[in-house]
């Protein structure tokens, strides 16, 4: 019987440019957690117990002190949990950790993830991203869903000069083209 081997949306892409680097991030699990009406406090409590962090508001992310998980506030009643995937069923892993307080959906395969880093990364993103990414406005840890070159993108600033960009898996080559073209155009 054949066994199935996973592949990443962008084949572990990595390229350096003058002042920035664009690289695919693989191996992350993404689980969406929706909050049942009326059980917000219980879910937040479970998250606090499990990882010692608050539930983030929409537009922000919070990373656990140990760094094993980051929770992104994406929309009212829904967050994404990002962590290293070491399980075929990450939604169930989350449920085991914090109980059935939330509704969990595995999103790990829905997204291609690019990390754009370096002191010119903001300049490159300027060509495709309408958000104001000035560090006084979009602070480290900030998260936003927006649109770039007709593609939906989740932007997470994970360092002062580095951004994680999540875009749909099926259109990942188009998204990569958009980001790489931006990097080239500012050279």
């Amino acid at each position: 019987m054949p066994s199935l081997v996973a592949n990443s949306p962008l084949g572990d892409f990595r390229q350096e440019f003058d002042g920035l680097e664009v690289a695919e991030v693989t191996g992350l699990a993404i689980v969406s957690i929706a909050t049942p009406h009326g059980r917000e406090a219980e879910l937040a409590g479970a998250v606090l117990d499990a990882w010692g962090i608050e539930f983030p508001p929409v537009g922000a992310s919070i990373e656990s002190t140990a760094g094993e998980i980051r929770i992104l506030g994406l929309q009212p009643g829904q967050v994404f949990a990002l962590f290293q995937r070491d399980d075929e069923r990450p939604a169930e892993a989350i449920a085991r950790k914090i109980g059935d307080y939330g509704y969990y959906t595995d999103q790990s395969d829905s997204w291609a993830i690019l990390r754009i880093s370096g002191d010119r990364s903001r300049e490159a993103l300027e060509r495709i991203c309408a958000l104001d990414l000035h560090p006084d406005v979009f602070k480290t840890g900030g998260v936003a869903r927006t649109v770039m070159e007709h593609l939906g993108v989740i932007v997470l600033r994970d360092k002062d000069d580095a951004f994680l960009l999540l875009s749909a898996r099926s259109s990942a080559p188009s998204f990569l083209h958009a980001v790489v073209t931006s990097a080239k155009n500012i050279q």
Binding site: S32, A34, P36, H37, G38, G77, Q78, Y103, T105, D106, Q107, S108, D109, S110, W111, A168, R169, S170
Partner: peptide
């Protein structure tokens, strides 16, 4: 708005 129901697209996941 009173219904407890939550939606997320799974088109890309599968």
């Amino acid at each position: 708005p009173g219904l407890d129901v939550h939606l997320i697209s799974a088109t890309e996941q599968w």
